[in-house]
């Protein structure tokens, strides 16, 4: 591929800086995509931490000095603030086959994670969100997420009997009414993924809505992707970065579409990339636990980022009111 891009020595980018949330996801990014990219091009990549991509990107653009080029984002962020992001050059990326939602004008899919139902190994397994809220047939304590309505409105509507293909546009009033009527069943509203994992594996709660990666390989907790709400996390590019840096970033993005590289990533984290060729390389165990394996994709609902981009602000306010009255 190297001949497509300006080689070393031609006004090539000196460095690519990626602002991302770190942790295991950062480690996976480093091993799976940064290393092969730097090996091919000789361009170093630096990972720096980020708390809120939109806020920090806005501040950086106001200051006028671009010192970070690639951002860890949700698609809804990009759709609501397109003026902050550069158009991607998909001809230059020349992606290997990836799922269609991963190919956006201003963002490229990085990995999927899902909001799923999990249960303590001692509790009776469940299959649907309706059962998650059915404390008669499935007695026990429940936990949900405290800080966001994101994906939880979908969960409420599915539990209330809305068919998956009729979810969007979300009936927000119905979702909040359902949560209001069922909130007494929730013992803990967790504040972080690690807390969620801790309480469901230790048996403090019997059932939890949780990020799939937190329990994927757990022996103390069971989980299913049935009716899971799956979200694709994206990378996007700073508006107005230097052309040679942009060219390097496009080349880096190509690395993210190679199935073999995505396979390296899932050895570090239980969140899988959008390559169509990845599934063939997985073990049976990986197909069972990863959110974007063919078998798990079929069971889940892809979150509608366009809908969330339009409605997020109003729902955030309403969620705060809901939470304050728990």
């Amino acid at each position: 591929m190297a001949h497509v891009f300006p080689g070393k020595g031609h006004a090539a980018a000196t460095e690519v800086v990626i602002a991302q949330s770190g942790g295991q996801a950062g480690e996976a990014l480093e091993k799976a995509y940064v290393q092969p990219f730097t090996a091919k091009t000789g361009i170093p990549v630096r990972l720096v931490g980020v708390e809120s991509s939109i806020g920090e990107l806005k501040a950086m653009l106001q200051s006028g000095a671009i010192d970070r080029h690639v951002w860890d984002v949700e698609l809804a962020d990009v759709l609501s603030a397109p003026e902050l992001f550069e158009d991607l050059d998909w001809d230059a990326i020349k992606p290997e086959p990836i799922f269609p939602e991963a190919r956006q004008p201003k963002a490229i899919g990085r990995h999927y994670y899902s909001y799923v139902m999990a249960w303590n190994a001692k509790a009776k397994p469940i299959e649907t969100w309706a059962q998650f809220f059915d404390t008669e047939k499935f007695p026990g304590r429940r936990a949900m997420m405290s800080y966001d309505a994101y994906a939880q409105l979908e969960v409420a509507l599915l539990a209330d009997g809305v068919p998956a293909d009729k979810l969007y546009p979300l009936d927000v009033d119905r979702a909040f009414a359902f949560l209001e009527a069922n909130k007494h069943k929730i013992s803990v509203w967790w504040d972080s993924g690690s807390q969620a994992a801790q309480i469901v594996t230790s048996g403090e709660v019997d059932y939890a809505l949780i990020y799939s990666g937190r329990v994927a390989y757990s022996k103390e907790a069971g989980m299913t992707y049935n009716q899971g709400i799956t979200v694709l996390n994206y990378l996007a590019v700073t508006k107005g970065l230097a052309p040679e840096t942009k060219a390097a970033v496009m080349q880096f993005f190509h690395e993210m579409t190679i199935p073999k590289n995505e396979l390296t990533a899932v050895a570090t984290i239980a969140y899988s990339g959008p390559s169509e060729g990845l599934d063939a390389l997985l073990t049976d165990e990986q197909r069972r636990v990863l959110p974007s394996s063919a078998q798990n994709r079929a069971k889940q609902i892809l979150i509608n980022s366009e809908w969330w981009a339009r409605n997020r602000a109003a729902i955030d306010k309403r969620w705060t009111e809901f939470r304050a009255a728990l």
Partner: peptide, 10 residues
């Protein structure tokens, strides 16, 4: 409050 309130004591 965040740990012991179980998210219910905002």
């Amino acid at each position: 409050p965040s740990v012991l309130g179980g998210g219910k004591v905002l």
